[in-house]
Nucleic acid binder design. Structure first.
Lengths: 334, 334
DNA sequence: AACAAACATGTAACCGGTTACACATCATAT
DNA sequence: ATATGATGTGTAACCGGTTACATGTTTGTT
């Protein structure tokens, strides 16, 4: 493998000149440029990222820490991140944290050792301590789906609270008279906000009861379990807003097994807008997040931070959109 | 950030000794070890992967090149890869090739510059040229889902041919009398083998006709289009083996729209065993690949190659298993 | 003509590790 | 008593780049 010295020798110049040419900084004579270029071509020289990184302390690498890539919400996000990163010449390291703090910390250490330029946090357990760790080590980072206040940092997120309210109103509009909610783990800001959005509206009605709110774990099976409990408590509910699509799909399946018809007996509205929602039968109505856009925005923000084009922390909130589909398409309108 | 020199100074030894201690090679006196260890603790020293990589030409990083992480087949694979990689201290770089040769080449270049230790190829377009590029640059690699003969390299794959035959036989056993096949892009070895498995058995029957084999593109929508064509040609078919689950799901959806009942009128069997198959209604019968195991095996193989524990190229073939579910559960048995 | 500014290039230190080699000490075998 | 091998440590070269600084040459200005 040719090195910069080989190129310099062949072109009859010093390594400094070659370096200047490659990085396009400093003066290089036109003729010299030509000679260097030819030498590079002839030797098929490619600059060594390792050596460069050691000297510059930049690696053009970012890390994406997420709970689990096999959770259907994340692949699209990951794809967006990688797409944007690549256009800027960055490489993406994939990290699955399983929402475990110690794994996250482990990653942060490894990433620090490797001079990673920045980290994208789509993992939810991020606490003040990790944030401190990142700030202390001066690693730029952007987080997804966090409540903005908590710690000072850049955030990209969706309007969960508003989305929940859109879901609730939609269920009402299709004729639901008693609407329940299955919410996700309360450590997750997203789940909490969606719950709050629901509760605020639901409380206004006399049919409301706290037992209409049941916790699930954001998995398919969890959705089934939660809906079973819910139906046993309140056999008369006719609409459920479910905190994420995975649970909603699980709930739909379970309802079918229980002989309860969706949407006529119970209408269902999920949240997230993952692709699976179109495979279900009936298709699942959901509050869709612009997942790809979120990933793009977060990556752009991170790269801006890395390249020093942005000082202040920013928060970006994306609108969500109702995808009204079969699971709330009731024949019996009010 | 503390460097090895700082540690050496504090411990009152040379950097060589510290390095020996850290890497556990060469002799270090027990007492000295203690002093060095204390210095490391006190300074919170972490060794710089960049400098180390420059000196050793190893980075403890592997790349996973796949067509598209948002294709539901790949997240589980990626997860397996990352899990195994992490236990060996390796980091994973994610690359989406969209099955485009130039993107793959681009990645190989970037990865070479970065001294990546090895590459896992789950992308299908890999041709002799790229393989040559890798071999020339002496980058260890393992490929997934390739026909073994093609070029000399390590391969991890499933028994596609056999799987197709299991699917065919299963459809027969549940009473299908005229079984069609929707196959995937023939550039993909997997798709080709599945087609061959089907064709070999189907040809034996007098109902067979080449027009029972229709090409699809391995996407959900493609499955719908293909099944529509198929049913217009052969309204009397009562079973379809479909080359991957995504197309099978699309086909099921389309059949439902066409008013054709699955499984009673047409039974469907897919291939891959992605999780989505359980969300569909009826659940999709499929030939499941041990995706996670495949990822694990491939990663282990790659790391062995990297660490020089394996010279010869190996091929690993995994058995597939029939998951018999609703989409082939016919009330009208023969 | 004198001088500043722009242009062009080279030297060498530095980034933070690894490791070959030299050297010293000590225990053991002969 | 001496040779031998194991143990323990330091020096300095090296990995392959970047870049501050020095130096020399043009060009333009007044």
């Amino acid at each position: 493998m040719a090195t910069i010295k080989d190129v310099a020798k062949l072109a009859g110049v010093s390594v400094a000149t070659v370096s200047r040419f490659i990085n396009k900084n400093g003066y290089v004579n036109e003729e010299t440029k030509l000679r260097v270029e030819q030498a590079i071509d002839k030797l098929q020289y490619e600059r060594n990222a390792m050596a460069r990184g050691l000297a510059t302390k930049k690696t053009e690498t970012i890390a994406l820490i997420l709970p689990d890539i096999s959770n259907p919400f994340f692949p699209e996000l990951a794809r967006a991140v990688e797409d944007v990163a690549r256009t800027y010449g960055y490489t993406v390291i994939l990290c699955n944290s399983d929402n475990q703090v110690n794994k996250e910390k482990g990653y942060i250490h490894v990433l620090k050792q490797r001079y990673i330029d920045g980290i994208l946090f789509a993992s939810h357990t991020l606490g003040a301590e990790e944030v401190g760790l990142m700030k202390k080590n001066n690693i730029p980072f952007v987080v997804l789906d966090r409540v903005p206040a908590e710690v000072e940092c850049s955030v990209v997120r969706s309007k969960n609270f508003e989305g929940a309210q859109i879901a609730f109103q939609h269920l009402q509009e299709v004729g639901c008279r008693k609407i329940a909610h299955i919410y996700g783990p309360q450590e997750l800001a997203t789940a909490k906000e969606r719950l709050m959005g629901y509760e605020q509206l639901a409380r206004e009605f006399d049919w409301f009861s706290p037992s209409l709110m049941v916790q699930g774990d954001f998995t398919i099976d969890g959705g089934g379990i939660a809906v079973e409990l819910l139906m046993s408590r309140h056999p008369d509910i006719d609409g459920i807003f479910i905190g994420n699509d995975l649970m909603a799909l699980g709930a739909m399946k379970k309802l079918k097994q229980m002989g309860i018809h969706v949407p006529d007996q119970v209408a269902i509205c999920g949240f997230d807008g993952i692709h699976l929602t179109k495979i279900a039968d009936p298709e699942l109505t959901t509050i869709a997040q612009p997942t790809y856009e979120i990933g793009m925005m977060a990556t752009r923000l991170l790269i801006k931070k890395i390249e020093g084009l942005m000082e202040e922390d920013q928060t970006h909130e994306f609108d969500v959109t109702l995808l009204s589909r079969g699971s709330t398409e009731r024949k019996i309108q009010v």
